[in-house]
Each structure stands twice: as C-alpha cells, then as structure tokens.
Design a protein around this nucleic acid. Sequence first.
DNA 1: TCTGGGGTCCTAGGACCC
DNA 2: TCTGGGGTCCTAGGACCC
Length: 422
Amino acid sequence: MITCLVDCNNFYCSAERVFDPKLENRVLLVLSNNDGAVVSRSAEAKALGIEMGTPWFKIKGAAKRFDWIAKSSNYELYGDLSHRMHELVGRYAASAFEYSIDESFLEINEKREDLTALGREIRRVVRRNVGLPVSVGFGPTRVLAKLANHGAKKNARLNGVCDWTSYSTEQQERILASYPTSETWGIAGRLERRLAERNIHTMLDLKNADPAVIKKAFGVVVQRIVYELNGIPCIEIEPVRATKQQIIASRMFGHPVTDPATVEHVLSVYAQRATARMRREKSVAGLVSAFAASSPYGDDYVSAWGQAAFAMPTDDPVAIAKAAAESLREKLRPGVKYVRAGVMLNDLSAASSHSFLPMFQPSYDHRGVGELLDKVHRRHGEAVIGLGMAGMRLGAGFEMRREMLSPRATTHWAEMATVLAR
DNA sequence: TCTGGGGTCCTAGGACCC
DNA sequence: TCTGGGGTCCTAGGACCC
C-alpha cells in the first residue's frame, strides 16, 4: 500500500477566502480565541515573516498601516468545510483516516499506475467542489508521505503534488540531507536538541541511525520514525476513534481575575460546556479535574489543580459542575491574578456500557436535568439556560472577543453568501 | 492592558498481587 | 556472604501534533 496525505494549505485562511474573494492575494491572518494570537497565515503573510503565535496586540498597528486583513476564528465555518473536504477525498481510497481538521491520510493501492495524476485529480476536485486548495503527498510510510506533502507545498514546480516513490535513491538522500531533524513529523525542538548531542542533525542522519540505539536513548516513538524514514511502515492507520478519551474546556480570560468566587463560577460554566460535549458523544466520565493558573509570562507563576473521582461514571451536569468547582475550592488564593482556567473530563466510557441497579442510580433529584438542558440548548442556544445563579453566562469581560468574525456561510441561513449580478 | 485550545501516545515508578 | 520475581494497574509528566 501507498500512503497519501491530503493537507489543506493555510487551512483557516483558505476557508475565509472561500466566500470572500476580496481576501485573495492579500496578507491575511486568522486569530485565536479572544483575538489573542495569530493561528493561520496566508502565503503573503508568511512571506513577510509574520510568525505563528504572534500576539495580535504586537502587530495590530502594523496591520492597520499596511492594510493587512485579520479575521477572528470562525470554527463553525472551518468545521463544516473540513467535513466536506474529508468526505470528498475519502472517496478516492479504500480506507481514509481524518488525522486533523485539515488533513486526511488515504491508503492507496500500490498497483495504481500514475500517483501524480491521481494527486492532481484530488486537488482539482477539492478546489472545484469545496473551494479549498490542497497539497497531496505520496510515500511508502506516513512519515515519508508527510515529507512529500511538505515538498509539494514548498516547491512551486511540483504543482501541489509530490510522489516520494518517483525519486531515485540518490535524489531521496539528497533531499533528506537538506532537512534538519526537526522537520520530521514527530520530532520537535527538544528531541532535535537531544539528537544533535549524538551528532544526528539531518533527516538523513536520522534515517541512517541504528534503531536499537535510538530506542534505548529516545524510546519506541523515535525508533518508529527511524523505521518509517527507511520506508518500513510502523505507525498504524488507526480506525477513527468513535469517542474521545478526554474532553477539555479551557480558556484564557480577557483580563486577570483575583476573586476565587469568580474563578469558581467560570469553572462551573466550563464544566457544563465539557459535559454537553461529552453527552453528545454519549459518554460518561469517571474523573473530573479542574485547574486555574496565573500568567506563565509573569514572574510569579501560580497554578492550582484538583480532581474528583465519581463512585459511578456520570454525565450529570449538576454533579460534574459541582465536583469541578469543589475540587479547587480550598486551593484558590485570593489576590492571585488568574488568567486561565479549565475543566477536564477523564476516564471516559460509553454510557451504554453501564447499566445501574436502581440502588446505585444517582439518588439526587436532578435525574433528567442533562436531557432537559440539551434540548433547550439545541433549540434556543447555549446562553439561555444553565446551572447556578448566572447559568451559562459569563460576565462582560469573559465573552469571547471576536471583532473580525466572518459569516457562517454554510451553516446559517441568515449568513449565507449572496451574489450580486450586474 | 493585550501571548490559543484541544488532543494523543509513551514512559517511569509506585502499589499491589501471587 | 547470601534476602524472589514476574505481572498488572495506575498516575504524573514529558513530548509531540495541528
């Protein structure tokens, strides 16, 4: 089998352009929640050297001066376009694996003659039907397909498609020797530094390293990467997991919070959000954890962490919200400037796998509260009802700042794109 | 004033069992 | 002198990905 990686170029930026052609050929940035930092850059923005993760406040002035365009992240739009893209490319393979919001791994039959032609076809079809530009890489393993995809993006002559297997051994080695280890999928800064101590600097060095020595020094994860670089597949294509193993709801606040009661209220809201997501997956949690922390950029970094286990796994928002808030109650210190908090649901399992004897069923009188909340939220939105005095609403300073939000053109009738004929 | 959020997998070490 | 050994489960922390 040959592995094929289809990856959308600058996904969030490209998604913004689908319904707004004015954004073509412009320096375009998409910002994280609260318009905090840059999370996607158009090719024009990359060419200017604007880095991923740059805080928006640092470049806001320049953006205005030079007429760059920034957009708040519109996850509803991205999610819907992503779904369409995955569905479409999945038709080209016997098995497809959605690796992330903008990447699909496809397993292609080796006998297929012209992989490059297939890649071009996928590109053309996604562009025409969904409006997104994708790059396509083919290789005998996932790591090499990833590298081929990278090449397809960087090298304009390839027209967005690169087939690793079409190169001679000499060509392959020359390419591998030109990349640092950190360009390898699965190797980042820390491992790069540790590899360098052993005189392993390029992807070719890594390919030629002794797998047994690598396993001893870096563990099985890096050993697998060595094998993959040598064309031996050992990172499995897993079936899409039906349900998540962990659900996290967490946010930076717009401004520091020094009052523990406010942090507790925020935790209650995050717990309700996490629970709602878990209920959609029909899972139950055995463990809830909560954390709150001050800014990691300040000198006096403080964090608090607590958790609570349930006697029986639950999806009851009342029990979960209560447990999340209580697990931190003693640990929050007045006066600390908290800028971030979160709730994690762990130890998840399918709700249907637990059938409780009546005596073990929750005895509280809020059985059915979860269903009721789900129903109301579906019909009238999240903000209208929730637990506790302020329900699901957070105070003015907590509402997400999204000042440059585009329309949700594919999921809301009222925000559909309009075309004017002249 | 302002710096993302949501995930996965692996490993080491301790507790415990027989 | 010499003091079992192998297995499982759990958890915290590390590293990485997009």
